[in-house]
Simulated scan of single mutants.
Amino acid sequence: MLILVVIFSVSFAVFYIWFDPKLPFFHLQSFSFRHFNVTVKTDGTYLNVATLTRIEVRNHNGKLTYHYGGSDVEVSAGQDKGIELGSTHVAGFSQAKNNMTTLKIETKNNQLVEDGVGPRLMSRYKNKDIVVNVEIRTTVGVEWKGWRIKALRVNIVCGGVTLKTLNRDMPKCTINLLKWINNHG
């Protein structure tokens, strides 16, 4: 058993030194509302919203290619992701070594919200104080010269920032895979 542990450790060390693997970097490049309307009717308050999000994905690896499976994306507003702004599916793609890709994500939603929530959201929208969140659930696999490593499920969480902040910075996203955090980029 000890010999197997030593062989595995040496193999992992050689792999790490040879490939110098780096996690992909995700940034919330931009976020905008194509449409934002709160309507009060006799049967309740309705939020009608359409969003456009751009996520920048960078592969800083010089030897490894990433393969992303189809991604489920949810866009929400509020500190606790309280108000759903829409969801969609983004087709899978491959990302060559030393490459940057931008994902364009469009969502729409028309939903009934609590009567007090609608006017607060409209006020925050007008003042650019609305907090936006983007969560991407996907799979990521790695390839080197035709050899593929099985894809793993990951969650990428972007946002938690106001529209004012987005005008100044391009926030980094968190990759949730064994609680790894994307801190470089």
Rank of each mutant, 00 (worst) to 15 (best):
I3H: 06
F8A: 07
V10T: 01
F12T: 06
F19W: 10
P21H: 03
L28R: 00
L28A: 00
F31V: 11
S32V: 09
S32P: 01
R34G: 12
N37Y: 09
V38W: 07
T45P: 08
T53Q: 01
I55F: 01
V57P: 01
R58L: 15
N61I: 13
L64A: 02
T65Y: 02
H67C: 03
S71A: 12
D72N: 08
S76T: 14
Q79N: 04
Q79I: 15
I83N: 02
L85D: 08
G92I: 15
G92Y: 06
F93C: 05
M100C: 03
M100A: 04
K108F: 07
N110E: 15
V113A: 06
D115V: 09
D115L: 13
D115A: 08
G118D: 10
M122D: 10
N127C: 05
K128Y: 13
R137D: 10
T138I: 11
T138P: 08
V140F: 04
G141I: 15
V142L: 13
E143F: 06
K145M: 13
K150R: 08
L152Q: 05
V154H: 00
I156G: 00
C158Q: 03
L163N: 01
L163I: 14
L163G: 00
R168S: 11
D169K: 02
M170N: 02
N176F: 07
K179L: 14
